[in-house]
Amino acid sequence: MRKPTDECLLCKVNAANKTNSHILPRFISTGFLGAKGAPRKGFLLNGINELTAKPKTVQDSPKEDYILCEECEAYFSLVETASAPAVKFWQTKAAEGELKIVPIHPHLKLVQLNSPEPVVMRLLVYSMFWRADISDLGTFKNYKLDSDLAESLRCSLLEFKALANGALQANLKTKEITLHPYATMTAGAFKDETANVLAAINPGNPASLHVDKFGFYIFKAEKDIAGNFMADFSNIKISDNQIMVVSEQLWYDVMVKRPLEMAVEQAKKNLLDSK
């Protein structure tokens, strides 16, 4: 178990004295627990005891102590604050004509975000995958990215570290970020907004994270996305800043139903192995 005197896992300089660090940004990882201001409740599925015990209830998205210092936590908060309006309210912005929408086919369209700056959005995504990789919580215990990718994400995040928006903007003008193609997916509507999931299932290439109403995928390099169906819908170039929007049914089948089925399949396997 980590201690407050251990080094920060991002900067590797300061003491990791911050408690209750969210592994996934709170602004996009708690909606499925219920409306803000109302009692919140979710269930922790671990693929182990779902068939033999009642799932543990949770009231917040995963948090961990002593992984970051106060400065690095403040930096991540800065990135999240800059990203939150565009991510949370893209539908309102699209309805008001602020965003370009590119129809692909009846089950898919692309939304071109006009904020935050593409590198800021990239930093947000990098931070989620990196935090999931370094977390020791049960949800992420077996989620380990390729070590070279994880270190590249850490170095990119550290390169742009800032404690105020002005400093962040200055870094955006003078520094370069290592490009790892990534894709963001959501749905135009949801059958039940409290039926979504947080899941770290695949740390491969691409690695994936299911974060309530959003799905994220990241590839190690551009050559790895060549030929993948997501190649035309991902953020590959430095200026790319787009989201895939899929149908309600496709979202449910891929991003909700399948992770739950996988948890049940794992629980069945573990039950048989224990006999």
Rank of each mutant, 00 (worst) to 15 (best):
P4W: 08
T5D: 14
D6K: 07
K12D: 14
V13C: 06
N14F: 04
A15T: 15
K18F: 08
T19V: 09
N20H: 13
N20G: 11
S21E: 12
S21M: 05
S21W: 04
H22M: 03
L24R: 01
P25A: 11
F27G: 03
I28Q: 06
I28P: 01
G31V: 07
G31P: 03
F32T: 07
F32N: 08
F32D: 04
L33V: 05
A35C: 09
K36P: 06
P39R: 06
P39H: 03
P39G: 08
R40L: 11
F43P: 08
G47E: 10
I48M: 11
E50H: 00
A53L: 13
K54N: 15
K54M: 15
P55Q: 11
P55N: 11
K56I: 09
V58Q: 02
P62T: 05
K63W: 01
E64C: 02
D65Y: 02
I67Y: 08
C69I: 00
C69H: 03
E70A: 10
E73W: 05
F76E: 01
L78H: 03
V79H: 01
E80F: 00
E80T: 00
A82C: 11
S83R: 01
A86C: 08
V87W: 03
K88Y: 01
W90V: 02
A94C: 06
E96H: 10
E98F: 01
H105G: 10
L108W: 12
L108Y: 12
K109S: 12
V111T: 02
V111W: 00
L113F: 09
E117P: 05
P118I: 00
V119T: 14
V120D: 01
M121G: 14
S135H: 02
F140A: 07
D146C: 05
D148C: 09
L149K: 08
A150S: 14
S152A: 11
S152M: 01
L153W: 00
L153S: 01
R154I: 08
L157R: 03
F160C: 09
A164D: 15
A164K: 15
N165P: 05
A170F: 08
K173W: 06
H180I: 02
H180K: 10
P181R: 04
T184H: 05
T184W: 10
G188V: 07
K191V: 09
K191G: 15
E193M: 14
A195N: 10
N196S: 11
V197S: 04
A199W: 06
N205Q: 07
P206T: 10
S208T: 13
S208Y: 05
H210E: 11
K213R: 14
F216A: 02
I218M: 11
K220G: 04
D224V: 04
A226V: 11
A226C: 03
G227Q: 12
M230S: 10
M230L: 14
D232M: 08
D232K: 13
I238W: 07
I238T: 15
D240W: 03
V246K: 04
E248H: 03
L250W: 11
Y252D: 13
Y252L: 13
V254K: 15
V256M: 02
K257L: 12
E261M: 07
A263H: 08
A263Y: 07
K268L: 06
K268I: 14
K268M: 12
K269D: 12
N270V: 04
N270W: 10
N270L: 09
N270H: 13
L271D: 06
L271A: 15
L272H: 10
S274F: 05
S274E: 14
